[in-house]
Design a protein around this nucleic acid. Structure first.
Length: 586
RNA sequence: GCGUCUGUAGCUCAGUUGGAUAGAGCACCUGCCUUCUAAGCAGGUUGUCGCGCGUUCGAUUCGCGCCAGACGCACCA
């Protein structure tokens, strides 16, 4: 068991003895400022607070019964009632030794694994994937990787936008102005052109709009020709998606698009009507407020000029068509029936938070029993802005296509590789550039707290210094370089932690699991980014101050090699959890 | 108008049950390549945590009210 878990366990046991009714699940330790110790618990202070106890007295009572002599140096009470723990050197060493033997990598699998459906990326058919898609795709993929690493059963599902009113216009365009040669050359660009042209015509001419609508109606009615064209558009788009996901190394267990749920949509609406959750209004069917919440917190109400008026979630349009709330409800139902998940996570733009609030509320009204066992979570994120603070666009004002963004990242990385590592063969330079470029894009997107908008900057992203993917990859490559030069193989080397840099690094390795758990708990990959950045920093400090291959004696050398190896393994595993590859040399 | 999110160093951003003297990178300055990759390291400078009030032993964190910005508000998703 990892040392901090041992501390927590003993601490919880003692707290339970002293306060039998206390909920000890929040009695945890956290890594802290090294001047106080390796770990700290402030849980006693909040326990004391709710019970109106003197926090220092409680800490004293707990400490009197706390026997951690085998794990820590003397435990200290500080300030208002902090407990500070410093690990015994032998415990730290033993933990590293166990990791070196392959018994663990500083994290433990979840005690009770959950089944979790994670819904992310969700690009639209017939449209190019743009820069915005990196957010849902990267965050979603990092989350699925971290959750899997911790032993949860994850089902990733790409809810592709393959249905909707846009197909009326696309079908009209396909039939009337399609350029076959262009379709061969760049299918997505041609489809995008069709949409743009017809859309403009529809805006200007109601008759064109009617034509488009009638194509849509034919598609929805199962007209053979329209269905065939629609399927071809999906196939062409899928080629694009596969190419991008292939480059990004993103895999889905399923890609059940919106259209997959068509057979159940009218059923969903009828059920909602039968259960009086939805009602008719102005020819449409919608879910309205049930009046159980104060108006301010009720997402089905909106204030207009001082009056609270209905803001329903429509599930059927007055023309009989369905809305995305309907599809999303059918999707929830399908996922419940198919996988019985404890959690369904939606990695979707924060601008849709209102939709999800409504959707989740409808779910609890519609499936009250399922709602008790399945938690729905919206993992929202902000927009990518240009350096002018406005939404990130190309110089000509178009949205930035994801494929082109990746190309440019790799190209820029290639230029740097050629400068810095001119001696390497070109194939290897290309490979380094690929990993560094793609890694830089992903890392830059995962690093900021996901809910805020962030400013996209080529220079910062591919900067060679600072909190960037290249910095982390460089630290990893330096370790690997040591092993290329090492003439010995380390096997069960005895680890000794003497130099301050060795101890600091070792302590930080132990926190990998705490970090992964925080990522899984709060669904924030940026915690892992910061952990790895610190790890790389502490390693580099060690590297500068503690010669490895040129250590004074063989024992020190072997010990340091073991420390290098563990650091490399955590770095690689951590980066992998972020969806970032590593290179052995750069 | 109402709602949601955001506001932390000159710039870009972190800040994990409320916790100790609020951190990092960039930029700027000073050192360090005949020693394992200088895409590096060591050190220095930088703050009314938007403003005010409240809860608390303790608030960047929680509550309320302002100010500023972004986004959203019935048949698109």
């Amino acid at each position: 068991m990892l040392p901090h878990k041992q501390i927590e366990l003993k601490l919880q046991t003692v707290v339970r003895e002293i306060l039998p009714d206390a909920d000890v699940s929040a009695v945890l330790v956290r890594p802290c400022d090294p001047k106080f110790g390796d770990y700290q618990s402030n849980a006693l202070m909040s326990l004391a607070k709710t019970r109106k106890l003197n926090p220092r007295q409680l800490a004293t009572d707990v400490l009197a019964r706390l026997d951690l002599a085998s794990v820590c140096e003397k435990v200290e009470i500080a300030g208002a009632g902090f407990l500070n723990f410093r690990l015994k050197n032998s415990v730290l060493v033993a933990s590293l030794q166990a990791a070196a033997r392959g018994e663990h990598l500083f994290f433990t699998k979840a005690a009770s694994p959950k089944t979790i459906v994670i819904d992310f990326s969700s690009p639209n058919v017939a449209k190019p994937m743009h820069v915005g898609h990196i957010r849902s795709t990267g965050i979603g993929d990092a989350l699925q990787r971290a959750l899997r690493l911790l032993g949860h059963k994850v089902i990733s599902d790409n809810h592709i936008g393959d249905w909707g009113t846009q197909f009326g216009k696309l079908l009209l365009g396909w039939k009337q102005i399609l350029n076959r040669a262009e379709l061969e050359r760049d299918a997505i660009a041609e489809l995008e052109r069709l949409y743009k042209v017809i859309n403009a015509e529809c805006d200007a001419n109601p008759a064109r709009l009617e034509e488009a609508k009638s194509e849509l109606v034919k598609l929805q009615a199962g007209d053979a020709e329209n269905v065939a064209i629609w399927k071809e558009m999906i196939a062409l788009s899928q080629k694009q998606f596969d190419e991008i996901y292939g480059r990004l190394g993103v895999k889905f267990d399923h890609a059940l698009g919106e259209s997959f749920y068509n057979p159940w949509l009218s059923e969903v609406v009828n059920d909602l009507l039968a259960k009086k959750i939805a009602r008719e209004s102005e020819g449409a069917v919608g879910v309205f407020s049930d009046g159980t919440q104060p108006p301010k917190e009720d997402p089905f109400l909106v204030n207009r000029d001082g009056e609270w008026i209905a803001d329903p979630a429509l599930v059927r349009k007055s023309d009989g068509g369905f809305n995305y709330t309907t599809t999303d409800l059918a999707t929830i139902d399908y996922r419940l029936k198919t996988w019985s998940p404890q959690e369904i996570i939606y990695v979707v733009d924060d601008r849709q938070s209102g939709h999800f609030k409504k959707l989740f509320l409808i779910f609890t009204r519609w499936k009250p029993d399922a709602a008790k066992t399945t938690k729905l979570v919206h993992v929202g994120f902000g927009k990518i802005m240009g350096e002018d603070g406005k939404p990130f666009k190309t110089r000509s004002g178009d949205t930035v296509k994801l494929g082109e963004l990746l190309d440019e990242a790799v190209e820029r990385a290639y230029k740097t590789v050629c400068e810095k590592s001119a001696e390497l063969p070109e194939a290897q330079q290309r490979e380094i550039a690929r990993v560094v470029g793609l890694g830089a894009v992903k890392y830059a997107d995962l690093l900021p707290n996901r809910q805020s908008d962030y400013i996209f900057s080529w220079d910062k992203m591919l900067a060679l210094q600072g909190n960037t993917a290249p910095y982390l990859l460089y630290a990893y490559a330096r370790i690997k370089s040591i092993f290329r030069k090492a003439e010995v193989k380390i096997q069960n080397a005895e680890i000794k932690l003497v130099a301050p840099e060795e101890i600091t690094l070792a302590n930080h390795l132990l926190n990998f699991g705490i970090t992964l758990e925080a990522v899984a708990e709060e669904l924030r990959p940026n915690y892992l980014c910061n952990y790895l950045f610190e790890l790389a920093g502490k390693f580099t400090s060690f590297y500068e101050n503690c010669p490895v291959l040129k250590a004074d004696d063989a024992a020190t050398r072997d010990s340091r090699l073991a420390l290098c190896d563990l650091t490399a393994r955590v770095l690689k595993q951590g980066l992998e959890s972020l969806g970032i590859e590593t290179v052995e040399q750069m």
